[in-house]
Design a protein around this nucleic acid. Structure first.
Lengths: 343, 343
DNA sequence: ATGACAAATTAAAGCGCTTTAAGTCCTGGT
DNA sequence: ACCAGGACTTAAAGCGCTTTAATTTGTCAT
C-alpha cells in the first residue's frame, strides 16, 4: 500500500493550489478570498466560513513570494547568525517568539568558515528582509552604517562606536565587574584575569576587570594573562600560573571554554577547585552547566536581548523611529560550584 | 561627519533599484538587462559590460521574490534544522557549499522548544522551497510521505522504514560495532552499553552493540543499562555500575553527553580512565574534542552527508529521478584518550 | 541595391498575490 | 416607488521580474 499517488511532483500532477483555485471553489473573487485569509474585516461571516473551509480542503497555503511582491511588504526580519555558536541558537529561539508576537517572520542566514558576513547579509536582503538583526557582527562600523541605508540594522551583542545604528547588548564590563564583586565578597584579593585577545568584547571585559579591581582598592593585584577565546588558551594560562611561586586565589576568564581549560589544567596539577582556587567563566554556555564543570559564570539573558532587538526593528519599521538607540542590558551573575571563599 | 544621508529608509528617499532603473540607465529593455544579469547567452559583449557596470553603479541586487514568481522556480532548498544541535551546524555549513556548487540557495528554518517541526516546514514551503532537507526529523513516516507530495523530502540522519523517501544517514549500528571491535581488539570483554532510550537512532545503536558483541562471541557479556541522551543519564548509569560488585572494563554510551556523564561519575569515584575503565561516546561532539575529555567516539562525517543530501535533491529536481533512494554512509571511529587496553 | 539569415534586442504576457476604486445589493426611511 | 447609505463583493491595476515570440539590426553573398 501507499505507493500510488506519491512522488509525482514532476509530472505537473498537482501544483500547489492558488488563491484562484480557492475562489473558484466557492464561486467568489480572489479579492474576497484574499481578504478572508488575511483576516481583513469586510467579508460576511458566511463567506468567511466557506472560504476557510475551501482553503483547508485544498490545503491552500499562501505564497509568500507573491504576497510580498504584491503588498510591497515582506514582514520579514533577516537574522544573521553564526550557527556554530550556542548562544546564537538561544537568541534565535527567542527572536522567533518575539517576532511572531508582532506579526513578523524570521529568515535566517548563517555565516560559517566558508561563508562570510557579507554573503549572509546579501542573502537576507535578497529575501527582502525589512530589517536586519545581526548577531555578533564583526564588520566595521562604517560598513554596517552603509548597510543601514538599505534596511534598518540592529546589531546584537557588540558595542558599535560612532555609528548611528541600533545596538542591543549586555554590559560586558559590568558582567566581569559582578564576578569580581562576587569573589571579593567571598574574601578573594588575588584575582587573575585571563584575557580574550583583541576585539571589542574582549576589550570591554578586560576593562570591566580592571575597573572593578580598582574599585575594590586592589590595583596592585591586577594581573592579566594573555589568552583568547579557546580552551587551549585557558590551559596555557593556567600552566603559566602553576609555574609561578604562588597561585592566585581566583581566576576569571574571558569566556567559558577558556575557563574549562583552566579547570582542566588545574585538575591535572591536582589543584582543588574551588578549594584552593576559584574559577569563573563568562557566557553561561551549555558547557558551563554540565555537572562535571558546574562553572560559575555570567549569563547574557538571551530572551531579553531578543525581545529588545525585535522591538527596535518594529519601531523602525512601523513607528518610524529614526533616532538610533542603544540598549544596554545588565548581565546576570550565575553562581555555581567553582567559586567559594578562599582557604 | 557621517550623519547625513543615513537612516532615511522611511521617507521613500531611495527605494532599492529595479531592473527598470538599470535598463533606463543604459537605454535598453529590462529583458536585455535580465538576460545579462543571469548570464544567459544572447546579449553582445558590449551590452554585457555596460549593463554590468550600470548594475554595479546602482548597487542593483535582484529581488528574489520577483524572480521566483516570474520564473516559477525558487532554486531554493529548504533546510529544517535544530539550531541547538552542534552537529546540525556542521551539516548546514557543508550544505551551503554543496548547494552553491549546483546553483541552489538554502533557506533555513529551525525547530526549537517553542516551534515544532510542522511550523518549521510550513515556513520552508511558504518560501517556495523546491525540496526539503530535514535534519533529524522526528515526524512519523507517513507524515513525511505526505509532505513528500508537496516537495521532495530528503531525511538526513534517521532511518525511515516503509516510506518512499530519500534518506541520507550513517549506519548507527555499524558505528557502535566499530567501537566494540576497537575495544575487543584492545582486549576488552566486559563491555557495557548505556542505552539512549526509545527512538530509531537509539534502537539502531543498541542493536549494533548487541550484534557486535555476539559476533565476538561475547553474548554472555551483553549488558545494557537504561539511559537517554543526557549527561545525567550517563551519571546515573555510572553510579549504578559503581554500586555493583565489579566494574566492567569498558563503557559505551548512546552519545557523547552521556559519556561525559559517565566520565564525571567515574572521576568522582576515583576510577581511572582509561586505566581502570575505558569509555567511549558517539557523535564526535565539540564536547568530546575538549582536551579535558578527549573522548573516543564515532564521527558521522557531516560533509559527506550534506553532499549526498544535496545531490539527492538535485536528482529529484533536475534529473527527474523518481525512485526513492537511501544512502547509508559508514561512520568513522575516532580514537582518542579514553580507551586503552584493560589493566 | 537586395534578400537571406544570424545576431541582438524587445514587447508583452504572465507569475500569484494585494489593494483601491468601483460596483452591486439590500435595508429602511420618506 | 425611490433614494441614501451601509454591507459586501469584485474588476483591474500593479509588484519586479522572466520568458517567449516577434521585431529590429547587422552581415554578406548575390
Amino acid at each position: 500500500m501507499g505507493n500510488d499517488g506519491s512522488a509525482h511532483h514532476r509530472n505537473g500532477a498537482h501544483k500547489r493550489p492558488r488563491l484562484e483555485d480557492v475562489a473558484a471553489r466557492v464561486g467568489l473573487s480572489t479579492a474576497s478570498v484574499s481578504l478572508v485569509l488575511r483576516g481583513v474585516p469586510g467579508p460576511s461571516e458566511r463567506t468567511r466560513q466557506r472560504v476557510l473551509k475551501a482553503a483547508a480542503d485544498l490545503g491552500y497555503q499562501v505564497d509568500r513570494t507573491a504576497s510580498t511582491l504584491a503588498s510591497r511588504r515582506s514582514r520579514l526580519l533577516g537574522v544573521m547568525v553564526d550557527i556554530h555558536r550556542p548562544f546564537h541558537a538561544e537568541l534565535v529561539e527567542h527572536l522567533h517568539t518575539a517576532a511572531e508576537k508582532v506579526g513578523y517572520d524570521l529568515v535566517l542566514s548563517t555565516q560559517t568558515r566558508t561563508r562570510d558576513e557579507h554573503t549572509a547579509v546579501e542573502t537576507l536582503l535578497a529575501f527582502r528582509s525589512e530589517a536586519l538583526i545581526l548577531l555578533g557582527p564583526t564588520a566595521p562600523a562604517d560598513t554596517l552604517a552603509t548597510l543601514d541605508n538599505k534596511a534598518p540594522v540592529i546589531a546584537v551583542g557588540r558595542r558599535i562606536s560612532d555609528a548611528a545604528l541600533d545596538v542591543v547588548r549586555t554590559a560586558d564590563d559590568d558582567g566581569v565587574g559582578q564576578l569580581v564583586d562576587h569573589l571579593v565578597g567571598l574574601g578573594h584579593r588575588e584575582i587573575v584575569y585571563v584575557d580574550g585577545g583583541k576585539g571589542v568584547i574582549a576589550t570591554d571585559r578586560r576593562r570591566g576587570y580592571r575597573t572593578a579591581m580598582r574599585r575594590h582598592g586592589l590595583d596592585d593585584h591586577i594581573r592579566i594573562l594573555h589568552g583568547d577565546h579557546t580552551e587551549a588558551a585557558g590551559e596555557r594560562a593556567a600552566r603559566k600560573l602553576l609555574e609561578g611561586d604562588s597561585l592566585p586565589t581566583a581566576v576569571l576568564t574571558y569566556n567559558d571554554p577558556s575557563a574549562i581549560g583552566v579547570l582542566a589544567a588545574l585538575a591535572r596539577a591536582g589543584v582543588a577547585v574551588p578549594g584552593e582556587v576559584s574559577v569563573a567563566g563568562y557566557d553561561d554556555d551549555a558547557l558551563s552547566r554540565l555537572s562535571c564543570f558546574n562553572l560559575t559564570t555570567v549569563s547574557q539573558n538571551a530572551e531579553e536581548q531578543a525581545q529588545h532587538a525585535v522591538t527596535a526593528a518594529v519601531e523602525r519599521l512601523d513607528q518610524d523611529r529614526t533616532e538610533p538607540r542603544e540598549v544596554v542590558l545588565a548581565p546576570r551573575l550565575v553562581v555555581r560550584g567553582t567559586t567559594a571563599a578562599p582557604a
